[in-house]
């Protein structure tokens, strides 16, 4: 078990009286791609944000590459440099050009020289197919381009794990493919990835493992083909039925 890239045990998170995560256990092996699916409010984004401690867990342990991030003495800033994160709303630094978005943390956090940071940035822009946008400002880019820049920004830190929090949910439908294509390429290159997503097709094709979450618990987990193709739990079945075939289902019954 010591070889796990991410190991979460007994993770709980409450916002005041609201219990969002009620004891999550999850192991991600190096090079594994794990997709987390589930209805909104099920705690999937909160769980992902606990992996790099953007949300402070209320209880439980999060270990990434052998470092326990829930240990209060750990240098969380240095640990985060090895965990890339991509957000639903891109969050590019709006006052910086594309190239500076990619170099600012390399320079200020990793203390890389200007030349090294630039080279790293250009290499990663090429990986996401945006070499021609080096000097553009974020506001001049489409959503899909912004998200690819955000991926390149995270990659420029040479992370060991990448977290994606609904990376395509804010995109126009015709731009989703560009971003998913970049993510698939990353997966093929062997990056360890945790992806919160509603793209079932992507999850089925790219994920090694799919986690279905509901109500703050992991309800079902297993290979993508099993969880999405042949779910065992009723809650997974009804969720997938609504997502995969939305027009043939009435309003969900309240529980």
């Amino acid at each position: 078990m010591s070889g796990a890239a991410v190991e979460i045990t007994g993770l709980c998170k409450s916002f005041g009286p609201l219990e969002v995560l009620k004891g999550i256990d999850l192991t991600v092996l190096p090079g594994e791609v794990v997709c987390i699916i589930g209805p909104s409010g099920s705690g999937k984004s909160t769980m992902l944000r606990c992996v790099n401690i953007l949300e402070e867990p209320t209880a439980g342990k999060v270990v990434v590459n052998g470092t326990e991030l829930t240990d209060p003495d750990v240098d969380i800033d240095s640990a985060r440099t090895k965990i890339g994160m991509v957000f639903q709303s891109f969050n590019l630094f709006s006052h910086l050009s594309v190239i500076n978005n990619l170099t600012v943390a390399q320079r200020k956090v990793l203390k890389r020289g200007e030349k090294e940071a630039q080279e790293k940035a250009l290499h990663n822009l090429e990986r996401v197919g945006l070499s021609d946008k080096v000097n553009a400002m974020p506001a001049q880019l489409s959503g899909g381009q912004q998200q690819r820049v955000a991926i390149a920004r995270a990659l420029s830190m040479d992370p060991e794990v990448m977290l994606f929090d609904e990376p395509t949910s804010a995109l126009d439908p015709e731009l989703v493919g560009d971003v998913l294509g970049v993510m698939r390429q990353l997966a093929d290159e062997g990056m360890t990835m945790l992806i919160v997503t509603h793209e079932m097709q992507f999850a089925r094709e790219v994920a090694d493992k799919v986690i279905f979450m509901d109500g703050g618990y992991v309800v079902e987990e297993g290979p993508a083909a099993d969880v999405i193709g042949n779910p065992q739990e009723d809650r997974t079945k009804s969720f997938l039925a609504r997502v995969l075939d939305p027009i043939h289902h009435g309003p969900s019954d309240p529980e």
Binding site: T81, I83, F87, V109
Partner: peptide, 13 residues
């Protein structure tokens, strides 16, 4: 926007 700080923190700042 709060996301700007979150992005910065997630990069290790």
């Amino acid at each position: 926007p709060k996301g700007q700080v979150e992005a910065a923190r997630s990069l290790g700042m």
